[in-house]
Design a protein around this nucleic acid. Structure first.
Length: 555
DNA sequence: ACTAAATGAGCCC
DNA sequence: TGGGCTCCCTTTAG
């Protein structure tokens, strides 16, 4: 819902005596701050200042009546004269702070040079000019040889079906089934694993006993697509049978349980080296661990691959040469490694960023390009891992600033794009779309920095940091808060027939209540549904076909 | 219609 | 190197 009217209740009082130097400034979120003055203090009148007479002081001995000044101050910089926050569905930045989008001072998001109406935040940084021979060869010869086959991008821009409040906590990872086109796996902050058949919509299950906290990453076993490996902040790798939900833990880095935050290991980045039959996984202390898939046991010792004590956020094996490894982490680097010579400090290449790197991926087909997402609000692209890697070929300003309460944003390649230039990434800052503040999902041509498409739906009011494009079909899967959405292209959308209409499965509290009552009629007065109806009327959308949870799962 | 809490990185000392 | 504080568009449960 759009944050239209945000009124605070009667403001709390901050009392400032003239002799009192101590301030209790715990009320940071106050839009209005009161300063209590004696009248003789004589503050300057402000248009936004109100005065109140206070009676209680009159009774005090020798004290004159005092007045209260209600001064509107900016909630960001605490200074008067301007206010930051939502005006309707548009967020007004604090002008005293650097631009929220590109992080440079002197302007706000509204007039940021990286923000154009049609190309929000995605103007490419100028391509660096080098006179390096390799670069020259690349530009003059190789680049021309690369077929500029850029078929028109097919953008899945319309929500086809959804499971609302499917998970009990926010979604942290998504993975399409490698062979079954209609199966989507989802992991959440609680460690639960969801398996959803989005063609049948109702067919879904959530396994709740695989991990005890954040499920950060999933990979299918390349030799048995019924088994899936998952890496979790509980410090374990699990291997789960999707049919039964039975899982084993080939690795547990916290065998002695909780001994405090200094020793608790969490697993983030994970990938599989098919040739070697290895699961590669990295922890929050900078170490890489290996699990042999055949024996399902840990393999050799851990190797320090990022700054000691810092989190490794991602691992990706090169699609053509799985021995070439790309990692990224909280030490502000993405690093390239050779598995055959893996020891601390032996990285082939270190790609510097100014802030934490959320993800780093080789391009999906040739493995020749690299795309990284960093918390400095920039996507970085290296066009060829065989050319000069000192600085990225392109930097694209894009709002995906990290908020600690969100799953980190990761720009993902389109695995179907033969030109390896299309990427999808959720956007953090909202845009005013017909009166609703929505956070679109951006499709970006990373070879130019152009925003190809921004997709949104008035029903998705939460931020969508987790996105995955289908390996074969024109489908986008989105994890937004606790809900999952499947997008398909508008032009390919089925005609409006009853059975083909978009589908919503609501697994929320209201739905549970309704199921308890044994009421399965579509006419029932349902909190979740009436909420949806509100959305609908607001968005002037066509009627959504609401399908119901009929399974006995624990969603 | 509220609010507290969950929670992580950066920065300063 | 580490504790303590701060933080601009969150989300939800209660």
């Amino acid at each position: 819902m759009s944050p239209v009217t945000r009124r605070s209740s009667f403001p709390k009082v901050l009392i400032e005596r003239d002799s009192d130097s101590e301030q209790s400034s715990s009320e940071e979120e106050l839009e209005e701050e009161e300063i209590l003055h004696h009248e003789q203090n004589g503050f300057t009148e402000n248009e936004k200042t109100q005065k109140l007479e206070l009676g209680f002081d009159v009774n005090r001995k020798g004290k004159t009546p005092i007045t209260i000044a209600l001064k509107k101050v900016c909630k960001v910089c605490k200074k008067p004269g301007h206010e930051a926050g939502f005006k309707g569905a548009t967020y007004i930045d604090c002008p005293m702070k650097p631009c929220f989008l590109c992080k440079t001072p002197g302007h706000t998001t509204l007039n940021c040079p990286h923000r154009v109406t049609s190309e929000h935040g995605v103007i490419p940084a100028p391509r660096r000019k080098t006179s390096k021979p390799l670069e020259y060869v690349f530009e003059r010869q190789l680049r021309n040889d690369i077929p500029s086959m850029k078929p028109k991008n097919v953008i899945p821009d319309q929500v086809n079906c959804a499971v609302i409040r499917y998970h009990s906590r926010r979604i942290t990872s998504l993975e399409f089934h490698p062979t079954k086109n209609n199966i989507l796996l989802s992991g959440d902050k609680k460690g639960q694993l969801g398996v959803w058949d989005f063609e049948k919509v109702h067919e879904k299950v959530v396994y709740g006993n695989i991990h005890s906290c954040i499920l950060n990453n999933m990979r299918f076993n390349p030799t048995n697509d019924c088994m899936v490996y998952s890496a979790s902040s509980d410090g374990t790798i699990s291997c789960t049978d999707l049919e039964t939900g039975i899982s084993s833990a080939p690795m547990n880095l916290n065998p002695d349980g909780w001994q405090g935050p200094n020793t608790w290991k969490m697993l983030y980045g994970m990938d599989i080296n098919c040739e070697k039959g290895l699961v590669l996984v990295a922890d929050n202390f900078g170490f890489l661990h290996l699990v042999d898939m055949r024996s399902n046991h840990r393999n050799s010792d851990a190797v320090l691959i990022h700054k000691k004590g810092s989190k490794v956020t991602g691992i990706h094996c090169n699609p053509l040469q799985p021995d070439i490894l790309l990692t990224c982490g909280n030490d502000h680097y993405a690093r390239i490694w050779d598995m055959r010579r893996l020891e601390a400090g032996s990285s082939l290449c270190n790609l510097a960023h100014t802030r934490v790197v959320n993800s780093a991926y080789f391009s999906p087909l040739s493995g020749n390009k690299i795309l990284t997402t960093s918390q400095d609000n920039r996507l970085r692209i290296w066009d060829s891992i065989f050319s000069n890697m000192e600085s990225p070929s392109r930097e694209i300003v894009h709002s995906h600033d990290f908020n600690r309460h969100l799953t980190p944003f990761k720009a993902e390649w389109d695995p179907k794009d033969p030109s390896e230039s299309l990427a999808v990434v959720g956007r953090y800052i909202s845009e005013n779309f017909n009166g609703a503040a929505l956070h679109p999902i951006d499709f970006i041509d990373i070879s130019t920095g152009q925003l190809v498409a921004e997709v949104m739906d008035p029903n998705i009011t939460t931020i969508s940091p987790v996105n995955k494009l289908h390996p074969r079909d024109d489908i986008l899967a989105t994890g937004s808060s606790r809900s999952l959405f499947i997008w398909k292209p508008k032009e390919k959308s089925e005609p409006v027939e009853e059975k083909d209409e978009r589908k919503f499965v609501d697994c929320g509290k209201a739905e549970k209540k309704r199921k308890k009552k044994g009421d399965h009629s579509d006419e029932s007065d349902d909190e979740g549904i009436s909420k949806l109806k509100k959305f609908k009327s607001k968005a002037k959308q066509t009627e959504w076909k609401l399908s119901r949870c009929s399974t006995k799962d624990n969603c």
